[in-house]
Design a protein around this nucleic acid. Structure first.
Length: 430
RNA sequence: GGAGAGAUGGCAGAGUUCGGUUGAAUGCACCUGACUUGAAAUCAGGCGUGGGCUCGCGCCCACCGGGGGUUCGAAUCCCUCUCUCUCCGCCA
């Protein structure tokens, strides 16, 4: 959420920036009208409340002195109705304003290139060299098929439906090994605190990180057993529970920065991506991810984004997987991001780089929704934190990259040195 | 699953019986000043969050777990949801 003041004192400029940078059209006239109404109604409501408070107080005083309060009660007779009407009107207007503002995307940082879609993203760097195969490389589904049926999409479909998978044997272990390796790296080398979090969260939590109100159709929602039980939703990423740990909290300055790492499954409905990446592990309704989250002071967030991205890169480097780092343009960034780097890993079967990590600085966008704040030493007012998150990495897609890049002519798959301790010391599988 | 108790400011903890000048006693923590070579101790003062109006001084509104209700007026009464604790039962 953007600062509401931007919609009052700098409405025209804000609308222009949103249009240019995010192709987001703000209904300026409607906002202006609503804001004017809000102002009038709020002043009226509050003065009615002030009047009611004053009169109620005098009734109390009169009663304490044993005076007759009947005339005072009569004088206050129609105040209640007036106040109720004003309140209702104000409420309506504020709900409308809130709906508009909650649906406005974040403004990009100055360093983000302008652009319409992914074609305008900027490649920042490449690491590693895609391997020259002396044979026709298979895709990960076929590579896995060679390893005693370690990846079974039919069984996934049988148990749950399309876009679900069952992993077994060495593939299942490799999948687990990758997650363990990533967590250990981030906790021991990069200073993250490991966290285990709920996979189901409530609506306030989803609002805090920006999934609601706008992107509810991307999630799986779980109805309570009884009618008036609170609705919960499966997390689409651990960013949601981790960042919300500081919702409605005020940290002391010395507690920052805070860094969390968690390994969780992620659940996405993938509504609107029918027919895309239907084969294989690339796009599933359920996938595992190791997520990195930072909560920092505003002045530190830009440097932190570089650090965070570096931590995700380190995983790819230690796994010896070729990748490139891409700076997303204004048009390709997520709803709440101010700046995002994607890491894309080389996928031999597709002869292209595919997203395996997305690292974003959300600026104060989520913090404002969540009221996640901190207080500087000696300062009176708390300030909004900045929040950042990034995948370090998506485990399923890492498995894809490893199987494809490390496949051998004989159908086996080599295990990178860094991962071997997590695989019982074996150098290859299959 | 059954029975009961509770949720108040950064923390602890009054107030809820019998609704009224209570944004809320008190203690701790914290900030400023005095004393001190410095610190501790002591003393004085300050010290919640969000919002509105105003050039400003400042004034006003809301908030005692969430939502709704009764009332001129609710931390206090009623309904409901959530969470916490105790006991019993069951259980990975």
């Amino acid at each position: 959420m953007l600062d509401a003041k931007l919609f009052r004192s700098e409405l025209a400029q804000t609308a222009e920036r949103l249009k240019v940078a995010r192709n987001f059209l703000l209904d300026v006239e409607r906002l202006e009208a609503l804001e004017q109404q809000r102002k009038d109604l709020q002043v009226r409501t509050e003065s009615l409340q002030a009047e009611r408070n004053a009169r109620s107080k005098s009734i109390g005083q009169a009663k304490a002195k044993g005076e007759d309060i009947a005339p005072l009660l009569a004088a206050v007779d129609d105040l209640g109705a007036q106040l109720e009407a004003a309140k209702a009107e104000l409420n309506e207007v504020q709900t409308q304003l809130q709906d508009i503002i909650a649906g406005v995307p974040n403004l990009p940082d100055e360093s983000v290139p302008m652009g319409a879609d992914e074609d305008d993203n900027q490649e920042v760097s490449r690491w590693g060299t895609p391997r020259e195969f002396t044979f026709e490389p298979k895709d990960h589904v076929d590579v896995a098929a060679n390893i005693v049926n370690g990846m079974d999409f039919d069984q996934g479909a049988k148990l749950a439906g399309a876009r679900f998978v069952v992993l077994k044997g060495q593939i299942a272990r490799l999948h687990r090994a990758l997650a363990q390796f990533m967590i250990d790296l981030h906790t021991t080398e990069h200073g993250y605190e490991e966290a285990y979090v709920p996979y189901l969260v409530n609506q306030e939590t989803l609002y805090g990180t920006g999934q609601l109100p706008k992107f509810g159709e991307d999630l799986f929602h779980v109805k309570g057993a009884t009618e008036n039980q609170v609705p919960l939703s499966l997390i689409p990423t651990a960013e949601v529970p981790l960042t919300n740990l500081w919702r409605d909290e005020i940290a002391d300055e010395h507690q920052l920065p805070i860094q969390y790492v968690a390994h969780t499954p992620c659940f996405r409905s993938e509504a609107g991506s029918h027919g895309r990446d239907t084969r294989g592990l690339i796009r599933q309704h359920q996938f595992d991810k190791v997520e990195l989250v930072w909560l920092v002071q505003p002045e530190a967030s830009m440097d932190t984004l570089e650090m965070l991205t570096g931590h995700a890169e380190k995983v790819l480097q230690l796994l010896e997987l070729p990748y490139r780092k891409v700076l997303l343009c204004t048009g390709d960034m997520g709803f709440g991001a101010a700046k995002t780097y994607d890491l894309e890993v080389w996928v031999p079967s597709q002869q292209k780089y595919r997203e395996i990590s997305s690292c974003s600085n959300m600026w104060d966008f989520q913090a404002r929704r969540m009221q996640a704040r901190f207080r500087r030493k000696g300062a009176k007012k708390p300030e909004l934190m900045h929040t950042l998150n990034g995948s370090g990495l998506a485990v399923g897609r890492t498995l894809v990259a490893l199987l494809e890049n490390n496949q051998q002519a004989d159908g086996s798959v080599t295990i990178p040195k860094a991962l071997q301790p997590y695989m019982g010391g074996v150098e290859k599988i299959g």
